[in-house]
């Protein structure tokens, strides 16, 4: 637990294209290797911006970000990032979409396809390997985007509302699955979500963000025993944490 996967120090971010938007203010936190961290906060508070900064797609206006001990601006491709929009490539079949990341990293296609095929069942996509993304439902598209992210051999995974368009049942299934996968390979995960239950169920640590410009208002450690089954949601401890987070969120700082 002494290894730091991601370190964010005093980061500010202001978009300055057509108009200036101050998206993040003085954000600092550390994520340990193998930790599962969630960010929760009101819409438009800068959660997606934060993930873009960590992935290296944006550079902080102020402050620094280290990924695996190196400044993230010095290189893209350090993390596996699943953006909020599924951004599947319409001209690639489902399986070709799945191995996109592998292709960029120079992993032989056959090897990547083999690895992907072992995951299709788990992601409820088997039988659709040769289909076009336009033939998938919204939930299937999201699962494919998730698969495409997990297949990338990186130690840190950034997920921007990965289950946003899934129905409640599939959502629970995917959460259990994610927990199980994380338990097995122990990669560091930074998750952005709107769903407080989801955050508590999955995370070691939750950061609650304020309205824009987003800054961390609370760090909540979740010490519920793992693995966490679905019924943990009804436990008193869970409910206590949940009401605490809701209180922070609704105080609207």
């Amino acid at each position: 637990m002494d290894d730091i996967a991601v370190e964010v120090e005093g980061v500010d971010y202001t978009y300055s294209q057509s108009q200036k938007v101050h998206a993040l203010r003085n954000v600092s936190f550390k994520v340990n290797t193998s930790e599962f961290v969630s960010f929760i906060g009101p819409s438009g508070c800068g959660k997606s911006t934060l993930l873009h900064l960590i992935s290296g797609l944006l550079n902080p206006s102020k402050g620094v970000i280290h990924v695996n001990g190196k400044k993230s601006s010095s290189g893209l491709g350090r993390v596996a990032f699943m953006p909020q929009r599924d951004t599947l490539f319409p001209w690639r079949t489902v399986e070709k979409n799945a191995v996109l990341g592998a292709e960029i990293l120079g992993i032989p296609r056959q090897e990547a396809l083999q690895k992907a095929s072992s995951l299709f069942d788990l992601f409820g996509l088997s039988g659709f390997e040769k289909a076009w993304p336009s033939e998938l439902s919204g939930g299937m598209r999201q699962r494919l985007a998730l698969l495409r992210t997990f297949i990338i051999p990186r130690d840190t995974i950034l997920l921007d509302e990965p289950f946003g368009s899934l129905d409640a049942l599939t959502r629970h299934e995917m959460q259990q699955w994610l927990q199980q996968i994380w338990d097995q390979d122990r990669r560091t995960i930074i998750l952005v979500t709107h769903d407080v239950d989801e955050a508590i169920l999955l995370s070691d640590t939750i950061y609650v963000l304020s309205e824009r410009p987003g800054s961390i208002v609370q760090r909540v450690e979740i010490n519920l025993e793992r693995p966490r089954k679905k019924k943990v949601i009804n436990s008193t401890e869970f409910t206590k944490i949940k009401s605490e987070i809701f209180q922070i969120l609704s105080s609207g700082i």
Partner: peptide
């Protein structure tokens, strides 16, 4: 967003062209 996605994976200029822009 597609360009961001492949750049985020460390794609070079040529890969961005080949994987996103051309198609």
């Amino acid at each position: 967003d597609m360009v961001s996605l492949v750049r985020g994976l460390g794609a070079n200029r040529w890969q961005v062209f080949r994987l996103v822009l051309f198609p």
